[in-house]
Simulated assay, not measured.
Amino acid sequence: MPEQTLTAADTPTVRLGYHGSTEVAARIIRLAGRDEATVRLSEYDVADPFRGIRAGELDVMIVKFGINEPDLVTSRVLTQDARAVVVGSQHPLATRESVSIEELADYDAFAPPGTFPTYVWDEVVPPRTPAGRPIRRNRRVDTIPEMRRLIAAGEAIHISLISLADVARPPGTRVVPIHDLPPAPVTLAWLRDSEVHDHVRDFITTAETEASR
C-alpha cells in the first residue's frame, strides 16, 4: 500500500464514475493512495455507460471486463470482481452457498439495457454456458429499479458480480456466488484524445503501480 494517503488539502478532486456498489471504487481509491474526500464519486447509468466520460463530466470511470471503444483508453487491470447471480429472496437458489452457471440456464435473464455494448454484455451475461446451454436473455428493462422489481418478484435472475451484495439487500433479493465463472477484470477508462490533468494521471499511475505489487 502507498506510504502516504493524499488528503483533500493536498490535491485537486478526481471525478470518478462507477456503477452499482461503491466497494470496488473504494478499493481503487485506496490503491491510488487517496483519501475518499479527494474523489467525487458519480454513479453512471448502465443503460448509457459512457455518456458521462464522453461529455467531460468525469475524469475517469471504472469499467469491468474488456471494452473496445475507439475513443477510450483503459488502464492495466487494477483488481477483480468475482461473479454472482442476483435472485429474489424466495427463489429456489436463494439459500445456496454458490451455484453453477449451468444451473442458471433454467431461468430467464436480462438482455442488455439501453446502449450498453452487446460485446461487454456477452461477458456479463454469457449467451451460452460452457456446456453449450443457451442463457435465456429475454427480459428487457430500461432502468435498474425495473430490473430489481422483476428479480424480487422471482420473474428473472441477473448474472452479475459479487460486489452487488453491497446494494442488493434483503428482504427482496439475494446475491449468490457463481463458482464456475472467472472473475471480471476491473480497469479505469478515460477519453483517448482529451487532456489528462496531472492529478488524474497520478491517480491512474499510482493505482496501477500498487495493483502490480
Rank of each mutant, 00 (worst) to 15 (best):
F65G: 14
D202T: 15
T205L: 15
E97V: 04
P183F: 10
R140K: 15
V176W: 01
P92S: 10
L188G: 10
P177Q: 01
I151G: 04
I101W: 04
D198H: 14
R192Y: 03
V141F: 11
Q90P: 05
I135Q: 01
Y107H: 09
R192A: 11
D166H: 05
V176L: 02
R76L: 12
P112G: 08
S98R: 00
L78N: 07
S98A: 00
P145G: 10
D166S: 09
A109E: 13
V200I: 10
S89V: 04
V60I: 08
R139E: 11
H179K: 04
S75D: 06
L93Q: 01
A184C: 04
E69A: 14
T173G: 02
L78T: 06
W190R: 11
T115Y: 09
V63K: 05
G114V: 09
L104K: 05
W121Y: 03
Q90M: 14
P70S: 09
R133I: 02
H197W: 14
V175R: 01
G132K: 07
I162G: 00
R169S: 00
G132V: 07
R133K: 15
T173M: 10
L161Y: 04
S160V: 01
V200G: 05
E146C: 09
Q90E: 15
R140E: 12
P145V: 07
G154Q: 05
L191K: 12
R136H: 12
R128H: 14
D142K: 13
N68G: 11
P182K: 10
I101D: 02
D81W: 06
S98I: 00
S89K: 09
A131G: 11
L150E: 14
R83S: 03
V60L: 06
L78E: 06
P117A: 07
Q90R: 15
R128F: 13
V73I: 14
E195R: 08
D71T: 15
V86T: 03
L58Q: 13
P183D: 12
A156K: 02
G114H: 12
L72F: 13
A152G: 11
T115S: 14
M147A: 13
P182R: 13
I135Y: 02
I178G: 03
H158S: 05
S194H: 14
R169Y: 00
D142S: 15
I135M: 01
T187Q: 15
A189Q: 04
V120Y: 05
E103D: 12
M61A: 09
L161M: 05
E103N: 02
D108E: 11
R136N: 13
V77C: 12
V186K: 12
A165D: 09
I159P: 06
Y107Q: 03
I204R: 07
V60W: 08
D180P: 07
A184E: 05
Q80S: 10
A153K: 14
P185E: 12
R174V: 01
M61F: 06
H197Y: 15
R76N: 14
V73E: 12
N138W: 01
P127F: 09
G88E: 04
P171I: 00
G132M: 06
R133A: 15
I159N: 07
M147F: 00
L58M: 13
